[in-house]
Write a protein that binds this DNA or RNA. Sequence first.
DNA 1: CAGATGACTCCCA
DNA 2: CTGGGAGCCATCT
Length: 127
Amino acid sequence: MSNELYQRIYAVVRHIPAGRVATYGQVASVVGAPVTARQVGDAMAAWRDGSEEPSVPWQRVINAQGKVSTGRRQQRLLEGEGVVFDAKNRIDLQQFGWQGPDPAWAEAHGFSLLQTFDAEAQQLKLF
DNA sequence: CAGATGACTCCCA
DNA sequence: CTGGGAGCCATCT
């Protein structure tokens, strides 16, 4: 039961490179309104259930705390891609967080870029 | 139509 | 750090 919105979510998730992770909220903001973090999670669950779509690297989508939401299997898959978890099973988003889609690609498909992260880095650089 | 449920997030104690 | 509660909203009973 995949609607157009889910297709857009999958399209974005497929652009997260191996070895990188994005939060549900990040994916949601790239897809844009009216998609919310919650719906991104729903879309991932729907993909698992339906599994009719082409492959989706669902394991690269994690929660805002830098942890996986679906158990050990997801963590193993990520570790297999080179993502490192700390002692508390958290991922350093500074190091492994997705920086957002390629600007040209995003523009071509009507997606948004991720701004917040860079903005923060810029702020820190000023001092 | 009402209620329960989740691969979410934020906030506060 | 953990836990609970409040928003949240598509989907399913």
